[in-house]
């Protein structure tokens, strides 16, 4: 009797877990997810230290690329971080978002990273965007020639 109840519990848990896994794969952008104005106004303390962006690139590769893609252009689980709507946000807003996460939309909380490393990630996003723009310009010039 106990064994049968045990098996029923296992089947129920596995079935419910599978259903949730399927639902969990659907990601929608949360328009209500905005940083408070005070947090958005914070400047990046590493903005004057471009040499720290390399550390940000390494962190991005480790922490973010699995969801946002290796170049930050987005993948099945995370949006395009080079997108104009993301890049228009302040450094403080991006810092707040990666520190707080948005568990309902599948964005983890990265407050376990030391604060300087979270600023390094923000710096990397800016550097990566500028690099992508530079590459696009260079491609446009060579095509025009």
């Amino acid at each position: 009797m106990i064994r049968r109840a045990q098996q029923a519990i296992v089947v129920f848990l596995i079935a419910s877990a599978s259903g949730v896994v399927a639902i969990a794969q659907i990601r929608e952008r949360d328009s209500e997810w905005t940083a408070p104005s005070e947090a958005a106004a914070r400047p990046n303390p590493l903005a004057g230290r471009p040499e720290t962006a390399a550390g940000g690139a390494k962190l991005f590769h480790v922490r973010c690329a699995s969801c946002h893609g290796p170049d930050g252009r987005g993948a099945s689980k995370g949006p395009d971080l080079m997108d104009a709507a993301v890049q228009a946000q302040t450094d403080g807003a991006l810092f707040w978002k990666l520190s707080n996460g948005n568990t309902r939309a599948g964005m983890p909380t990265f407050s376990f990273l030391p604060e300087p490393q979270r600023w390094q990630l923000v710096l990397h996003l800016r550097v990566a965007r500028r690099a992508a723009e530079g590459r696009a310009r260079a491609t446009g010039i060579s095509e025009a020639r």
Binding site: T52, A53, A54, G55, K58, P116, Q117, Q120
Partner: peptide, 11 residues
């Protein structure tokens, strides 16, 4: 707590 603060660029 994490021991380091800034991440180095090198692996």
């Amino acid at each position: 707590r994490a021991v380091g603060t800034l991440a180095s660029g090198a692996s």
